[in-house]
Amino acid sequence: MKKVSDFFSLPNRKRILSQSFFFGVIATVGLISNSFSSSSKTYAQAPPVNNTEIKNYAQAVLAMEPARQKAFEEIKKLIGNGEIPKIVCNDSNSINGLPRKAQDIAVNYCTQSQKIVQDNGLGIDRFNKITIELQNDTNLKREVYNTLLRLQQTPDK
């Protein structure tokens, strides 16, 4: 029988933090992918995601996360106690509803995220298609999760 303290051991905390991080990243990626999608939403059958794309996708997501957190914190400071609205990069209404300085932060983040995706060897359309696939493919989700963990443990590889 497990003791309560066993649930808070270092390996369990690391696993829980990793899982929480992964699900937070996937939620963030879902929002970001909406930001890059074009107004015409025709999704043909996407080719299978290969190992290189999985690694590139995971690297892009990890590279975007610090910028996302920074932008969120900066916007939060500007808005104060108010609720931060959902910001979708390709929806000018979601950005225009922000105070001017917050708009600049959001636009900068969107531009930076798009560049990160491209710098990691993926086009925006492919990044979005992989994000959509993640929502429907448990095996792909597991592969991306494992890649995220591996990249965090050995960031130079």
Rank of each mutant, 00 (worst) to 15 (best):
I95S: 04
Y43H: 15
D137R: 04
F21M: 08
K86L: 13
A102P: 03
E83F: 04
E83C: 01
I16E: 07
D137C: 02
R15I: 03
Q152S: 09
K157P: 01
G123E: 12
A71Y: 03
I16G: 03
R150V: 05
A67F: 08
N81K: 10
I87N: 02
L148R: 05
D137E: 02
I16N: 07
Q135N: 00
L10C: 04
K157A: 10
P48L: 12
L148M: 13
Y109N: 11
Q153I: 07
D156F: 10
L149W: 06
F7W: 12
A46Y: 13
K86M: 12
V107S: 12
T111P: 05
I26G: 00
V117Y: 03
Q114I: 12
L148P: 03
Q112L: 15
L78V: 04
S113T: 15
I130F: 00
C89S: 12
K55H: 00
I124M: 09
S18I: 00
A46S: 14
G123T: 15
V61G: 00
V88A: 04
S18R: 09
L140H: 06
S5H: 09
K141E: 10
F7R: 08
D91V: 11
P66V: 06
K70M: 10
S94T: 15
F8P: 03
S18W: 00
N56G: 02
P47I: 09
T42H: 14
K2H: 12
A44T: 11
S37T: 14
S94C: 07
S35N: 08
D91I: 12
A46H: 13
G121L: 06
Y57L: 04
S38G: 15
F21T: 05
Y109W: 14
Q153S: 10
K14L: 06
N108S: 15
I105S: 03
K77T: 09
S18D: 10
P155W: 06
F21K: 05
N81Q: 11
S113D: 09
R13C: 03
K129N: 01
E73R: 11
V61Y: 00
N136C: 00
S9P: 04
F72D: 08
K41T: 14
L78I: 12
K101F: 07
S33P: 02
D119E: 15
K14C: 01
N93W: 10
L31Q: 09
Q103W: 02
N96L: 13
L149F: 10
N120T: 11
D91T: 08
D125V: 07
I54E: 01
L98N: 07
A60F: 00
D137Q: 04
K76P: 01
V107C: 06
A63M: 02
R126I: 05
M64V: 05
D119K: 14
S33T: 12
K3Q: 14
Q112H: 13
Y57S: 02
Q153T: 09
S92M: 13
L98S: 06
T154H: 12
N108K: 14
T147M: 15
